[in-house]
């Protein structure tokens, strides 16, 4: 019975993941793609739970679904990205290469399906918070610290990009474009023409990205130390 349940769960969430992934690349509207991708992330998080990795599952939902994709959706809504136009394929010569590569992949999948053994399902505490914290702060402290430096670089990069974008006066940009009233760049309530110092929504996006990264850096440091002591 339990065996059957786990097979059912795998089929359910695996099917959901593949279905959402397919829908993601089939959809032409980026927002539809984004929501499908959120579906993939959530079903992968459920799969992680069945793999006895609850911590990673939670972080998957928080980081991917809750942070990265929210930013993506926010940017899509902000830029008001229109539906993609289908164009004739370029790089036509790549089609045989793709066919060959997909054949290799299918062969690999068959190899895996027939020659790789089952998951050892001994109950363990490997996926729990404490063991992950311990691993992250002892054996893998160097990659962890390097990641924090990377995140710092990302903060600086995002700030730089956002600041340069904010130098262009928003009011001037939207005033000369024809559809000024419907333009998503100006918040009609918080228009900079009304009050000089109010930040526009685009500026907030930049800050958000940076602060997201700060949060991740800080909370990771905090949580990890808690587990270590």
């Amino acid at each position: 019975m339990l065996e059957l349940t786990s097979v059912f769960l795998f089929m359910l969430f695996g099917g959901m993941a593949v279905g959402c992934a397919l829908s993601m690349i089939v959809q032409r509207n980026p927002l539809y793609s984004a929501i499908s991708l959120v579906g993939v992330f959530v079903s992968l998080a459920c799969l992680y739970v069945t793999l006895a990795a609850p911590f990673i599952a939670a972080v998957q939902v928080i980081v991917y679904a809750g942070a990265i994709m929210v930013l993506v959706v926010f940017v899509i809504m902000l830029l008001n990205v229109e539906t993609e136009v289908r164009r004739p394929l370029r790089l036509r010569y790549l089609i045989p290469v793709a066919a060959g590569l997909s054949f290799v992949l299918i062969a690999q999948v068959f190899f895996m399906l027939f020659f790789v053994g089952p998951v050892s399902s001994a109950p363990s505490n490997v996926g729990l918070t404490a063991s992950i914290g311990a691993g992250l702060f002892t054996e893998y402290i160097l990659p962890f610290e390097i990641t924090s430096v990377l995140i710092l670089m990302a903060i600086v990069g995002a700030m730089t990009l956002a600041r340069r974008a904010a130098d262009i006066p928003l009011a001037a940009r939207s005033a000369d474009s024809s559809g000024a009233a419907g333009s998503p760049f100006t918040d009609p309530i918080n228009d900079s023409r009304i009050s000089g110092s109010r930040p526009g929504l685009t500026e907030i996006v930049g800050r958000e990205m940076a602060a997201r990264a700060i949060e991740r850096l800080e909370s990771r440091t905090g949580r990890g130390q808690g587990e270590e002591t």
């Binding site: 991917y64 942070a67 990265i68 993506v72 990377l150 995002a158 991740r216 990771r220």
Partner: peptide, 10 residues
């Protein structure tokens, strides 16, 4: 995931 987050920001 950390790398993906910074990638998203930049």
């Amino acid at each position: 995931m950390a790398v993906a987050a910074s990638e998203a920001a930049v």
